[in-house]
Simulated assay, not measured.
Amino acid sequence: MPLHLHQQPLHRRHRYRHGNLLTLADVFPGKRALIAGIGDLPDEQTHRLQAYGILPGRLVRVLSKRPMVIVQVEQTELA
């Protein structure tokens, strides 16, 4: 999934640089990441992700990467 993410900082005052952008595939299970943006997707897919709460500025937790990627957005788990 072409999301652009920031790894969740250990300290709130930590600032990110553009070089720290990741994709969902780069985040280890159990870690949180801040969504910085959604990559180049058709409008229909972008709207679907937004409807599920996948929005810039939203914090997600990667629960699993195998056999499929499962993320938690607030209280919702998405595969």
Rank of each mutant, 00 (worst) to 15 (best):
V60A: 03
Q7A: 15
D43W: 02
Y16V: 08
H14Q: 15
H4S: 10
M68V: 13
G57C: 09
L3Y: 02
F28D: 11
L3A: 03
A36D: 12
R58E: 14
G57P: 06
L59D: 08
Q75G: 10
Q7P: 12
L49G: 06
H14W: 12
R32L: 01
D40Y: 04
R15Q: 14
R13S: 14
H18G: 10
L78H: 07
Q45F: 09
G37C: 09
G57L: 11
A33E: 03
G37K: 10
Q75E: 15
G19N: 14
E44W: 13
Q75H: 15
L41F: 09
E44P: 00
L34Y: 06
T76L: 15
H14C: 05
I70K: 15
D26A: 04
R61M: 12
R15V: 09
P9T: 07
L3T: 09
T23M: 09
G39M: 02
P2G: 13
G19R: 15
L22W: 04
R17L: 13
L22T: 02
P9H: 08
H6V: 00
L3K: 02
G53I: 09
M1W: 11
G19I: 11
A33Y: 05
I35Y: 08
I70Q: 14
V71N: 03
L55N: 13
A79K: 12
D43R: 08
Q50T: 07
H6A: 11
P2I: 13
T76P: 00
P56L: 10
F28E: 15
K65D: 08
P2R: 14
G19S: 15
Q7F: 07
R48T: 07
Q7W: 05
V71G: 01
I70L: 14
G53V: 07
R48I: 01
L22V: 03
D26C: 02
